[in-house]
């Protein structure tokens, strides 16, 4: 029986997530894994925005910031339980994306890049400057989600790293499932069509602004949830989460891995998250290596790492 590509992708993802801990030399790797999955969630949103709809954003870290600070602030000031704060942040991000997206998404290419960049920077500026709420540049503590306590009451003792590994994996796989659903759906086809030719998309009845906006909002929610989980895992959050470099990181991970496919983007997130964590020896050269990798991959493997690797493998099989 032929497995549909969607289920094949999910199966690969589940197997890798489940098998990886078998090779972990120490508990530290659970944290690295969790970080990979948290970034994996954000880049899956990038796949929908950049890969499907062909729209760039250099400001999505702003939404991650909203998600993260919602988890820190909503439980304290609004008496919302920490779990619900994730949903609260997602709703807030979606609302902001909805309002700002309409005018911004009329822009194309670099202009869209700069407008979104400005949006992200404005959000991070607020987080940085409103210190009486956000703690300013030092960051702020995040109330405990209470998951470990809950598990302990049920008689399960799990390390924090291990717990977050599985929680983040679960959310990432759920996110991947949604994005893969979208790909082969009326909305997904409309997005990919307007990516290919906006003019043609309009003449076949696609409401281009509406669909772009949907992609923008959905990807903002992904970024927000990613930021929320990061905050909950670290229990401390700083404005860096909303910074320009984090936005760049999201786009780079996705495009480097292969932004047209969910698996590719998550592959990119894996590499760019794991390398700096594992190669601490090279800490000094981290920036240079990162910059070099970005340039080289874009020049020599413009489709991204995973699609290029797959193409090469396929080519070899056919010979």
């Amino acid at each position: 029986m032929q497995l549909k590509p969607k289920y094949l992708s999910l199966l690969i993802l589940v197997l890798l997530v489940a098998a990886a801990p078998l090779f972990f030399p120490s508990g530290f790797y659970y944290r690295v894994g969790a970080l990979i999955f948290i970034n994996g969630i954000a880049v899956t949103g990038m796949v929908i925005l950049i890969g499907y709809a062909g729209q760039i954003s250099l400001g999505h870290a702003g939404f991650a910031g909203i998600g993260a600070y919602s988890c820190a602030l909503a439980p304290v000031y609004l008496n919302i339980p920490p779990v619900a704060a994730i949903a609260f942040g997602a709703a807030l991000s979606a609302a902001l994306a909805w309002v700002v997206g309409r005018p911004i998404l009329k822009l194309h290419g670099y202009y869209l890049g700069v407008a979104t960049l400005g949006l992200g920077i404005l959000i991070s500026m607020v987080l940085l400057n409103e210190a009486q709420w956000t703690g300013g540049p030092d960051g702020i503590a995040v109330p405990d989600l209470g998951l470990r306590g809950l598990l302990r009451d049920m008689g399960l003792r799990v390390g924090a790293g291990e717990l977050w590994y599985w929680v983040a994996a679960l959310v990432m796989i759920l996110g991947a499932w949604l994005a893969l659903n979208l790909f082969d759906s009326p909305t997904g086809r409309a997005l990919r069509a307007l990516h290919g030719s906006e003019v043609a998309a309009r003449t076949i009845g696609i409401d281009v602004p509406r669909h772009k906006l949907h992609a923008f909002v959905v990807s903002a929610v992904y970024a927000s949830v990613s930021g929320s989980l990061l905050a909950q895992m670290n229990r401390l959050i700083t404005p860096d989460v909303a910074g320009f470099m984090h936005s760049v990181q999201m786009v780079t991970m996705a495009v480097l891995g292969g932004v047209s496919s969910v698996l590719g983007a998550i592959f990119g997130a894996t590499i760019l998250t794991a390398l700096p964590q594992l190669l601490t020896v090279f800490h000094q050269y981290e920036h240079m290596v990162l910059g070099l990798v970005m340039i080289l991959v874009m020049i020599f493997l413009p489709d991204g790492l995973l699609p290029s690797i797959l193409k090469r493998l396929k080519g070899r099989n056919e010979e």
């Binding site: 950049i50 670099y110 760049v248 786009v251 981290e286 920036h287 990162l290 910059g291 990798v293 340039i295």
Partner: peptide, 20 residues
């Protein structure tokens, strides 16, 4: 190359130069 790739290339160059 598409705009996204060019953005990543020049940002990559910026990061590289900063590190250097």
């Amino acid at each position: 190359a598409p705009v996204v790739s060019l953005i990543i290339i020049t940002i990559g160059a910026a990061i590289f130069l900063q590190g250097a």
